[in-house]
Amino acid sequence: MAELWGHIDGTTPAPADATKLAEWKIKDARVMSWITGSCDSKIVLNLCPYRSAQTMREYLKKVYNQTNSARRFQLECEIVDYTQGSLSIQDYYSRFQNLWVEFSDIVCAAVSKVSLADVLVVYEISKRDQFLMKLRSDFENAHSNLMNRHPPPTLDVCFSELLREEQRLLTQTTLEQEKMNTTHMAFSVHGKSKGKDMSKVQCFSCKNYGHIAANCTQKFCNYCKKHGHIIKDV
């Protein structure tokens, strides 16, 4: 396969020897058939004047090769505008990673191997900071804690800790909701007694109906046999 690739990039030129040339032409014709077979029929017509795989490739590259400038700009805008919003930490992280991977591939393609390592270090720092800065306010404490560490943690570590923080917040919210529901239920049950028919309720102090001893205006103590209080008040 590497030998056939040489027919495309020109590293395997046509030999001068007639015997080897015949073999070379067979291989070159095979590559040309692959090229035409992978192109649209309208484009194939444009390739007819070219008699080698290399010249076909050069024509296609000159006419149809396009830079990724437009896509890179689009990704930059999407990354700038992207925030967590109502997404879970997992969904936010996954989409964030996809944007950055595609963006990095486009940018790093034009970077030399010598400089690539340094560029990737800068990108990882920027990616982590943007990920943390665009969390919603629920995670403000966790975000501040992660940003203020020395040395700052990697994005993977931040993601792991934010998943735990999300679970903690979810548990806390659930407990608070259950507490509110319990309080509301207790209030509702207590409130039902207010609608009770008091005309059938007898005061154990004065023996009259319509009120209870706590609200009785004719309190009588059955212990000391005096008016004005009940035994509970003594």
Rank of each mutant, 00 (worst) to 15 (best):
T217C: 14
K25F: 05
V44S: 01
R57G: 02
F159N: 14
W34Q: 03
E178N: 12
N141V: 07
D197N: 15
I212Q: 09
A14N: 07
V80S: 07
K207G: 02
F139T: 02
N98V: 14
K194G: 09
Y64D: 05
P153I: 00
D40E: 15
D233W: 09
S38R: 11
S86I: 11
E140N: 04
E178A: 15
K25S: 05
Q130E: 10
S94Q: 13
A110R: 12
V63T: 08
E78I: 13
M56Q: 11
W34K: 03
K25N: 05
R51M: 08
L75I: 07
D156H: 10
Y123I: 10
S144H: 09
W34N: 02
C158I: 08
S33I: 11
V63E: 01
L75G: 03
R51P: 03
D129Y: 07
D40M: 10
S199F: 12
Q177V: 10
C108V: 09
K62G: 03
D197M: 12
R164T: 07
T36I: 08
G85A: 04
K20D: 02
D138V: 02
N148H: 09
K20V: 01
V63H: 01
A16H: 13
A14T: 10
L155P: 00
S52G: 01
Y82M: 07
C203Y: 05
T174N: 08
S112M: 05
V189Y: 10
F103D: 01
S104K: 02
